[in-house]
Design a protein around this nucleic acid. Structure first.
Length: 572
RNA sequence: CGGGGCGUGGCGCAACGGUUGCGCACGUGCUUUGGGAGCACGAGGUUGUGGGUUCGAAUCCCACCGCCCCGACCA
């Protein structure tokens, strides 16, 4: 591809709106352009990278027996009503009517369509198991997109679905995906860690997220460097030594003016935060009022809370007047004397004696509050978020916390959708059984962005060879001084073109200064930069630079041509 | 949805009541060619939209739209 023909433009200045390196570089180098919030066009270069990522995924999924297909982006709403998600999902799903006034939706995912196909096609256990997948556009109207391609509203996802007779089959498909994902992210040049993750309200039994470690990540991961334990903080259990037993002392009210936070309370009373009880108030999507109690040195983990009380529709923080209406006082709150409130207490908080808790009166707290002596929990369970240095649930050593970006997930769905839609097969036993499903996703654009996060420097992108849009970037310098430069560059370009589409290279044939050409080559990030100039000709070949390391040497045309023709993997 | 910020030529920015300007990019010509070249000429903007205040609004006020950041949220 001649750069003079390529539909792209590089930006000399950093775009004002791009903060993450991947966003900035993909914009500056002409790989993507933004159309709206969370909506991007892939320019030819970006599209080629995306297609190469897609191909890696395709190869690895085919290797575990996946069959590629394609399902629609527009679905009849009735299908989503059958699974119950039409009403369960909020405004993040786009809904519209077609010309005949039928309700339609834009696909957020494709479990329903797969289940619909299953009930149409699968009759007998003999047809199972199988894995199907496609690369298809999803629309998810996120409350907030961010980070360029990291979190968008419209994106292409590889989603695969395993369809099995039973849980044993699902388990096999699940771990096959786990292994395939490990290979995929290795090939993409992404260092990932697979963490166990929340299965949420989906009724699934097991899920992992593949996380790319990055400070801008939206998820917090709990990792153990000793034994390899890895979990999303949403599900990582808190392990704490049982507090020392004490005699339960009588409750005693103390004046604590202005001590509305744990920090100020602990400082005012001169006690450690671990001797206090923290109350957080929420309202569930199903309308229940919840008081969650953790020890003052911990924070409430909302995912754990949701799971502990089986809250549908999530949680929102309670308003001050809602707290008051239940007989409690924001800033000085505890469940003592609470009305119409689901009281959920963290295991550690429940076991800790003589804590300082709110008196439900402005400016006052209570010393020596004990569960269940002073109030009765509806639920006791693990509610606290794991902190850096807490004990690993597996080996007891201190854990570390890291931020991660979810680049893929695998999920045991079970029979939720097949039961809802009546996708059954006739078993060997002559009985009808629901088909057992798993679903597995990888977002293409997010992976492209993460690859850039992992492979760039101050000059630009440095693509791993596996995903680079072109194998090499050919730069001709000083063509006006020596006609052999242009002749040679043209010849090299021809050789690559003749080697077929997989061996195509970028050829900077523009009438630009050397500085512009080198700068653009480094910004665009092809793995190899091949420079032809009077200087290199005098040295008997072309100068070859490995973008990732900057290593540079003059190679014979024999070596360079072997590379361009696809006979060798590297010109150096 | 809450908090904050920003909308001026393709990009980055200035002008902050009185004729919209600069750098880069762009077009033409000449020179130049191993690290974002030089000179000359030139094209390009109803200052996001609508209302208001004013003799006069990019500038002040109101509303709306859009984008970014933090948080909430994330099937």
């Amino acid at each position: 591809m001649r750069l003079s023909n390529l539909f792209f433009a590089t930006l000399r200045d950093d775009p004002a709106d791009a903060e993450m390196p991947s966003h900035r570089l993909l914009l500056r180098a002409g790989y993507v352009r933004q159309l709206g919030a969370g909506i991007y066009s892939l320019l030819p270069l970006g599209f080629r990278v995306s297609k190469r990522v897609e191909q890696v995924i395709r190869e690895e999924l085919n290797a575990i027996g996946g069959q590629e297909m394609e399902m629609p982006v527009v679905h009849p709403a009735d299908l989503w009503r059958e699974s119950g998600r039409y009403d369960a999902i909020g405004p993040e799903m786009a809904r519209f009517k077609d010309r005949a006034d039928r309700d339609m939706v834009l696909a957020m995912t494709h479990e329903e369509v797969v289940a619909d196909l299953l009930r149409d096609i699968v009759r007998s256990y003999r047809q199972l198991p199988f894995i199907v997948y496609h690369f298809q556009t999803k629309w998810r109207d996120e409350p907030r997109s961010r980070g360029g391609l990291i979190r968008v509203r419209e994106f292409v996802m590889k989603d695969s679905y395993s369809c099995d007779r039973d849980d044993a089959g699902l388990d096999t498909a699940y771990w096959a995906h786990h292994r395939a994902y490990t290979r995929i992210f290795e090939r993409l040049g992404l260092d990932t860690v697979a963490v166990s993750s929340d299965v949420g309200m989906m009724g699934g039994s097991l899920a992992h997220e593949f996380m790319f470690l990055n400070p801008a990540g939206e998820d917090v991961l709990v990792l153990c460097e000793v034994c390899g334990y890895a979990a999303n903080r949403q599900v990582a259990p808190t392990v704490a030594p049982a507090p020392a037993a004490e005699d339960l002392l009588p409750v005693e009210e103390v004046e604590t003016p202005g001590a509305t936070t744990i920090d100020s309370l602990a400082a005012f009373l001169g006690v450690p935060a671990s001797r206090t009880a923290k109350a957080a108030f929420f309202v569930t999507g199903d309308g229940r009022f919840v008081a969650a109690i953790v020890r003052g040195d911990h924070d409430v983990n909302e995912t754990k809370l949701v799971n502990a009380i089986k809250a549908t529709g999530g949680l929102r923080p309670a308003q001050v007047d809602e707290i008051k209406a239940r007989g409690m006082e924001a800033g000085y709150g505890s469940p003592i004397g609470a009305r119409d409130t689901v009281v959920v207490v963290d295991t550690l908080a429940a076991a800790s004696p003589n804590l300082v808790a709110g008196a439900n009166r402005p400016g006052f707290h209570l010393r020596n509050v004990n569960v269940p002596r002073d109030y009765t929990p509806d639920v006791i369970g693990d509610l606290a978020s794991v902190r850096e240095g807490d004990s690993c649930p597996d080996c007891g050593k201190p854990v570390i916390l890291r931020s991660g970006i979810e680049v893929g997930n695998i999920f045991k769905l079970g029979t939720k959708y097949t039961k809802a839609l009546g996708a059954e097969y006739l078993g060997e036993d002559g009985e009808r059984h629901p088909i057992v499903m798993g679903s597995y996703g990888i977002g293409l654009g997010r992976n492209v962005a993460c690859i850039v996060e992992a492979h760039h420097d101050e000059k630009g992108i440095a693509w791993p060879a596996e995903v680079a849009p072109y194998r090499a970037h050919l730069v001709a310098i000083g063509g006006n001084k020596d006609p052999r430069v242009v002749e040679t560059a043209e010849r090299l370009h021809e050789i690559a073109a003749a080697a077929g589409p997989d061996h195509e290279i970028l050829y900077d044939d523009r009438d630009e200064s050397p500085g512009v050409k080198f700068t653009d080559a480094e910004l665009l990030g092809m793995p190899w930069i091949i420079t032809v100039s009077p200087r290199s000709l005098a040295a008997g070949g072309a100068e070859v630079t490995f973008r990732a390391t900057g290593e540079r040497s003059v190679r014979s045309f024999e070596d360079v041509e072997a590379f361009l023709a696809g006979r060798s993997a590297s010109p150096a």
